[in-house]
Simulated scan of single mutants.
Amino acid sequence: MTDRTRRSTAQPDTGTARLRKERTTAHTPARITRLEPNEVFVFGSNAGGMHGGGAARTAYEKFGAVWGQANGLQGQSYGIDTMSGLRVLASEVSGFLGFAREHPHLTFLVTEIGCGIAGYRPKQIAPFFADVPPNVVLPATFDR
């Protein structure tokens, strides 16, 4: 586990194996300003990949998101279209989770996708992340 993930327990950091063991207690921090080489910043995007605000802007300015690319891996970021309706968002999250399972050597730090400009509440988005692999870290607001 990195110093950018918070745990609800006050135990010392013992690495990725600990994160996998305690997956349910690790959370993405509210603000991410740097990443380790094996970490990926997961953000909400619009269908046009115009990363002008919120986490999308951070992904573009700091983590290699590509202007005009809405979804998928982009540098050290991964875009999920959150602006084209809940059905599209659910499909995008499903595709992302498949990608995360295929890349267990990476740790994916999911931001509060869909809960900013897209206007959804965490309780609407959290169910899409019901079955996450151990290398996906969610914001505390997605806990159910």
Rank of each mutant, 00 (worst) to 15 (best):
M1F: 08
T2D: 11
R4V: 01
R4P: 13
Q11C: 00
P12T: 00
D13Y: 08
T14S: 01
T16M: 05
L19S: 01
K21S: 06
T25C: 09
A26F: 02
P29L: 05
R34D: 11
L35P: 13
E36G: 04
E36V: 00
N38C: 05
F41I: 03
V42C: 04
S45A: 03
S45Q: 05
A47C: 13
G49H: 07
G52N: 07
G53K: 07
T58W: 06
Y60P: 10
E61V: 03
K62H: 12
G64H: 09
G64E: 11
V66L: 07
V66K: 00
W67M: 05
G68I: 10
G68R: 07
Q69F: 08
G72C: 11
G72A: 02
L73V: 11
Q74M: 10
G75C: 09
Y78I: 03
I80G: 08
I80C: 11
I80H: 04
D81C: 13
G85L: 10
S91T: 00
E92Y: 06
S94H: 02
G95Q: 06
G95K: 03
F96G: 02
L97D: 03
G98S: 10
H103E: 13
H105Q: 15
T107S: 04
T107E: 11
T107Y: 06
E112Y: 08
E112T: 06
I113T: 06
G114N: 09
Y120H: 13
R121H: 13
K123C: 14
Q124I: 14
A126T: 14
P127Y: 14
F128R: 03
F129L: 12
A130L: 12
D131G: 12
V132C: 14
P133F: 05
P133C: 07
P134R: 04
N135P: 15
D143L: 15
D143F: 15
